[in-house]
């Protein structure tokens, strides 16, 4: 083989390898014989014996491509039930105070225009659990960090024993602490902004909200989150919704800066 042929061969072999940066196999995960992730395998454990939630996740449940089910015009984009109605699965819907029910009803015709998300504002948890963009969890003994592709944002959950501080600065994600109850991580959050949207329907909670997320990983392929919202300013009683995530492997996080080249605002119509 001539040197030029060797160079060409090396180049030929190098191109596919370089093109596969996004598809590098995720190390250390259980796989079936055909190389796919073994979703039924036991959940990984930390050195402390707790379930390890680390990894990339996306919502498990996808609505069929039907405008009736989605409540929005149909596209091929995978949408979860809670993205279009965070109360999906909540019996009798959200228990709003009358003024809050009127507010949601009154803005229903304008949601496509006034939803903060339409203007590329942060997704904010717990709403972000239902977004189609990927999240990535890093679990450490004293803190859980969640990266979110949308606007390349982050969320911190402190599990070092601290209490929820008083007089918190209102933020999109609130301030989160956590403790373990068996194999369940119980996350408590407060300090939200006023009128925190929960979905594309305009459901919301207020700055008075206390949100509890009970997170479990029953096996490798499941992350279950029960979100309970206690907000006496907006609701007549606390309510809980169940969300389910599935792992995303052999890929990486990719920037999604929503305001990079957003040409949609001029097309939003009332």
């Amino acid at each position: 083989m001539t040197p030029m042929r060797i160079i060409k061969l090396v180049l030929f072999l190098a191109v596919p390898a370089a093109a596969q940066w996004l598809n590098l196999p995720t190390p250390g995960i259980p796989r079936t014989r055909d190389g796919k992730p073994d979703l039924a395998a036991p959940a990984p454990k930390t050195s402390g014996g707790k379930p390890d939630f680390s990894g990339m996740w996306i919502p498990r449940d996808i609505l069929p491509c039907s405008p009736t089910d989605r409540g929005v015009q149909c596209t091929e984009l995978p949408l979860t039930p809670q993205l279009v109605n965070f109360a999906a699965g909540v019996k009798d819907g959200l228990p709003y105070q009358p003024w809050a029910a009127d507010l949601v009803k009154g803005r229903s015709k304008d949601v496509a225009y006034i939803d903060p998300h339409m203007r590329c504002m942060p997704p904010n948890f717990p709403r972000a659990w239902a977004f189609p963009e990927t999240i990535k969890i890093f679990q450490m003994p004293a803190e859980l960090v969640i990266l979110h592709e949308f606007n390349a944002s982050y969320r911190e959950i402190f599990s070092d024993g601290r209490k929820l501080p008083e007089d918190l600065l209102p933020t999109w994600n609130g301030y989160s602490i956590a403790h373990w109850e068996g194999d369940t991580l119980v996350v408590e959050s407060a300090g939200y902004r006023e009128d925190s949207w929960l979905d594309t329907a305009g459901n919301f909670f207020s700055s008075e909200a206390h949100v509890t997320e009970r997170i479990r990983r029953p096996n490798f392929g499941s992350l279950d989150i029960d979100v309970t919202v206690d907000d006496p300013k907006v609701f007549t009683k606390p309510w809980t919704v169940a969300l389910h995530m599935r792992p995303l492997v052999d890929t990486e996080m990719i920037d999604f800066y929503c305001q990079d080249n957003n040409k949609d605002l001029e097309h939003l119509v009332r």
Partner: peptide, 18 residues
């Protein structure tokens, strides 16, 4: 290319004749 169907959820499709 097929994935180029439509936008992400950050805007509605009210602007388009779906």
């Amino acid at each position: 290319v097929g994935g180029a169907s439509l936008a992400l959820a950050h805007h509605s499709y009210s602007a388009f004749e779906m």
